[in-house]
Amino acid sequence: MNKHHSVCLPLPNNPIHSPIPMPFPILRTSFVVLSEIISLLEPNEIVTASLCSKKVRHLLKNHYQRRKPSKWRLSMFSWGLVDIMTRTVSKRINVMMARHISEQEGTEHKSIEFNGYKGTLDKGLPILYFRDHVFGIKMVVDYVTDLFGLDIYGFTTGSDGLWAFDWINNRQEKLLGGKGLNKNPNYALNEDKTDDDVLIVRNDVSINARFNGKLGPPDVLLLDSDAHWVTCDYLMKSDAIKLFVSFSKLSELELNSFLRHWRAGGSPRLAYLKVRFDDEDTYFVNFDEDLETFETKAWTRFRVVVDDDCFEIREDYIIQRQDGVKATIHCGLGHFTMFVWHSDKN
């Protein structure tokens, strides 16, 4: 056993001498207490604690096998980062990272070690360094997914991370089912529609060549960094469930054309379309008459990702498809949003 002290101890191997509080023999507590403590830790703290010993790692793994954090969403980034979204899109926590050994931090960070690999703890984030970065990324992702019993839900990649699509698809049943679309940075994120897993992918490669046919159309599509090039024709062909277009130069004429296409039965899977205009002063107001839109004061909510990420919609426009499906259109300064009310309630 460790020699434990009841006073603040400097750690000889660590450059940062933070005071050590009074020891608490956690492994001598009951199952109930242990579970309560674990449930109060953030995911990055769980990962750090799991590096203490094999026994603790098994204990934490067992905890998450029993209490699967079903609402947590794990994402990997091709540069080696793993993060977990615990409740909402905005509540994301970096939990572990693999870096190339050439990026090793100086001695200002606390040092850690796992399986013979050296690392540092940077603001609560365990970072391990590897000579083979791809090997390290795989190891770190495997480690975290195994610890929490989670699949990879989202993937963000640069052009050097394309290997990961096949790797992810080979390691789990939930495939990355989307296609990349953007210049950079590239991104893939599995979003919730209802209970289904859907996916966002962005990347800068020739998407059609790489993903078409193999992975099918994307369920969720983010065009977020430089989507000037997105045309009405492109929107019509995307066939996504949720479509986010940022820095758009789409004109009223084009959006009207898209709405006409949708009313005629086009983009049948579309549940959510968010267009952020490049010009923040753009305000879409002129609907073509043949679209038969009408104003509504009704108040409703639309769940974009999880329950905590609901949009409240009021005082907007209604448009109806020829088959009866309705959509609400919200027009604000600099953006245009469309919520489609499918019979499955989105």
Binding site: M1, N2, H4, I26, L27, R28, L40, T48, A49, G124
Partner: peptide, 21 residues
């Protein structure tokens, strides 16, 4: 107890929570 290990390294956590290596 959870607050005790905020920002701590595995080595420090071992000390605080008296976890054997």
């Amino acid at each position: 107890v959870a607050m005790m290990v905020k920002g701590k390294s595995p080595e420090e956590i071992r000390e605080i929570w008296m976890i054997p290596t």
